[in-house]
Design a protein around this nucleic acid. Structure first.
Lengths: 199, 199
DNA sequence: GGAGACTATGTCAAAATTGACATAGCATTG
DNA sequence: CAATGCTATGTCAATTTTGACATAGTCTCC
């Protein structure tokens, strides 16, 4: 059995509800809203070819708008089996990377006023994301996707987590912005007693 | 000016409080606890060489335990400047990848009992992580790192976010486990009216 | 006293990911 | 009727990341 990469499984996941063309997959994997995985077009087409070679997906072809054929991909029985087996396995430990937290760690080396702007911008970004999540959530609710038997219950459940996790992050960003205001004032009042540089 | 990669900035961040050897950096970048960035040893040594060539860090060398010298790296004035400039910039949009959410999206293709175990294992993983966060948080609090002027306030602040964000995730995992129990029962009672496959 | 772990540095090949390029019809806008 | 954007497929080089290998002294456990 050919080993399948994480991206390969992501594509199988995207196809689990029905056939899609490569282009539709590219659209879905561009922004993480609702799917929690991203990939470039230049990754997706070769990976579709690999999955096809492994017999996990198959496709119909029609004439497309460009010089090449338009292909509609769907899971094979083997693909559905491989997906089902992978889903219940514990996730592989992944590299955790959060640029905002990295910057926060090195806060002491930054200008407090600049960082206040940084955290306010972050709060706005997450607020906009939350609005989009809420809209999708309301839409799925109106179609009763909160029923575990509903075919879109999975998508609904991902939004539940996003709706629970985003507000604490926004609150934290605003709290950090306040701490930066406080820090700027404190640094002005008692100029750098702990500071190592005094150029 | 030579462009610096995200990993390069992560190393500058790790060095912002004082000099460290390559080995110490490797230790710190292995587990994301408290640093929110990970990297392999094979990435770190070449990146240190690049940063050194760009004049952002410099090092002292002594005799080491192995066949090579032990080097202690520290930021130069240029490195400190580059770091300060980068910190206040809005984060570059990153690929968002969460295997548990990806699997949740494709829930309908999985066995509910298997998924129940999956979510319970996830909840335990996050609970253990939360315990470690709380321990570090208490330790930093005892050293008054909640004061924005304290040199470790940045590390304290990252833990504040972790402490706010992890409990909702644990609750969500347990909620999902309950939904999976419910789903298994529902599927038994009314056998697959919406199911596409009936092999 | 030998096995294994820890300190400490680095290299190498392979895989994954990114960003830019290329083709071409059809629709929309000005 | 020209410019731009959308549909739709793919390639290519460059960068980033991973996992495995290599060296050698010291320290701890059995």
């Amino acid at each position: 059995m050919a080993t399948v990469s994480a991206l390969g499984y992501a594509l199988l996941c995207a196809l689990h509800r029905g056939p899609l063309t490569g282009y539709e997959l590219v659209q879905r994997m561009r922004k993480p809203i609702g799917y929690y995985w991203t990939a470039q077009q230049s990754q997706i087409y070769p990976e579709l070819a690999r999955l096809s070679a492994s017999g996990l997906i198959e496709h119909d072809a029609e004439a497309g708008p460009g010089p090449r054929q338009r292909k509609t991909h769907r899971l094979t029985a083997a693909g559905r089996e491989a997906l089902a087996a992978w889903l219940v396995e514990p996730p592989a430990p992944r590299a955790f990377r959060d640029e905002a937290l990295l910057k926060t760690y090195a806060l002491a080396a930054a200008d407090p006023d600049g960082m206040r702007e940084f955290y306010l911008a972050e709060a706005e970004t997450y607020q906009r994301r939350l609005d989009a999540f809420q809209e999708q959530h309301a839409d799925l609710l109106s179609r009763h996707a909160d029923d575990p038997l509903h075919p879109q219950f999975g998508a609904f459940a991902t939004l539940e987590l996003a709706l629970a996790g985003t507000p604490p992050r926004i609150r934290w960003c605003r709290w950090m912005a306040e701490r930066m205001t406080e820090l700027a004032r404190l640094r002005r009042d008692e100029p750098g007693p702990r500071s190592e540089e005094s150029s």
